[in-house]
Write a protein that binds this DNA or RNA. Structure first.
Lengths: 228, 228
DNA sequence: AAAAAGATTAATGAAAAGTTAATGTTATTA
DNA sequence: TAATAACATTAACTTTTCATTAATCTTTTT
């Protein structure tokens, strides 16, 4: 898991201390500076993923700092974290190029979630998301419907895929017949149940290369995809 | 300047009306639906840049709707716009993959700024590739529509080119019928689907010199240009 | 041992996709 | 402006795909 590096610009000693400690605890690398000039200096020297700017600071305020960042062509995403909650300030913040404008006070947990979300969006800009499931020696790519085992590859159909994903999401846990049927087939009747059996057989055949993988039936209850 | 297309999911008639009108005035294309089921239907048919979800709606709430979007692999960025302001709701919203969580009431002007900001961040660099695409022993030049294989050359038409480029950009990944149709044809209906088939046939014929290249159909899903 | 549930393989049929040709439609040229 | 050319769309028809249904066999439960 990537560790993100943040620059925190906050003149208030106690809030700065608190945030610094909390963010570090949450697995961020944090550099904390207390004014705009120090911020600019550090930004010249080091690379950051995101910059958190207070607005109200003596000497050079957050807006002025943002202007400087823009002027010096330092390409770093920044956001404002401030008690200035007037609409006009928010608009100004965004017009300066902020990626977000967060009003104080904010719950630390929510802040972390927002930061991670922003960093995730900013990073994802160019890479297509790769959601892969791993089970035993198999890999399943639900976006392309591709199941792979070593160099072999199978193209699954949509029903096969839906069922496999359902089981994978509940790996090692029982999936009740009725839940599978209601979720995937939309209803739970005699015929759909038969159909489900046929698909389980297919998946078993597809997964037989790794003997540690099993789709167990729990009589009258449901199926369980077992592995490890 | 690009005009962004939004899906607004809001059951409240007066707020929905207000937002719809305001956003249209601000140069967005807006489709307004009043419940989750309609939203899912429209999402299958049309392409949007961003989706604005209310949380509290009868029948299927916004969170449930987001789950459905995820499960159906509809790749659309969405945010919540809601009066539910508890931390636990915010965290839930982000955990479902929201790009933002905006608390009501919000000033319309601020909303628009936030939307534009998000869309700006999300906008993938649509670097219209100037270089040649290579696939197998073929090269394709998208500027003058020229496909070459060894000494042979073909002049493609614009539709052929658009489709080929779309497939090339997503080489080895599924391009969903509906996405191709919405992007290239502008809409997804019976006739356009037929037309798409005709073009796929043409491209297959053009690419047949290299047997390692295949345009696969994934039943009910889309096409996949395979190579290597 | 009988009955119910599950597994497996095969058959079926409707919908989707493939192909070729005909028909519109638009832009270009005479 | 009529004729032509280029090309996307629609039509007509064939082939393929795949979820469902059916048939048959095996396991589990009572």
């Amino acid at each position: 898991m990537k560790m993100y590096k943040l620059l925190l610009v906050e003149d208030d000693a106690s809030l700065g201390y608190l945030l610094n400690e909390y963010l570090k605890m949450k697995n961020f690398t944090v550099i904390w500076v207390k004014n705009g000039n120090d911020a600019l200096k550090v930004l010249e020297e080091q690379q950051f993923d995101l910059c958190i700017l207070d607005v109200m600071m003596p000497d050079m305020d957050g807006f002025k700092l943002a202007e400087n960042i823009n002027q010096k062509n330092i390409s770093i995403p920044f956001l404002f974290l401030t008690a200035r909650s007037l609409k006009i300030d928010v608009l100004k913040g965004f017009s300066l190029g902020a990626v977000d404008y967060i009003r104080k006070p904010i719950d630390e947990e929510e802040l972390v979630v927002r930061l991670n979300n922003l960093l995730h969006i900013l990073a994802k800009k160019n890479t297509s998301q790769k959601e892969l499931y791993k089970i035993g020696f198999y890999t399943y790519n639900p976006l392309d419907f591709e199941l792979s085992f070593e160099s072999e590859k199978w193209q699954l159909t949509s029903r096969e895929s839906e069922l496999l994903v359902y089981l994978l999401k509940n790996k090692n846990h029982i999936c009740k017949h009725k839940d599978i049927l209601n979720t995937i087939w939309g209803k739970n009747d005699y015929f759909n149940r038969k159909s489900l059996n046929v698909f389980v057989t297919r998946l078993r055949k597809l997964l037989k290369n790794d003997p540690s993988i099993k789709i167990e039936n729990i009589h009258n209850q449901g199926f369980k995809l077992m592995s490890e």
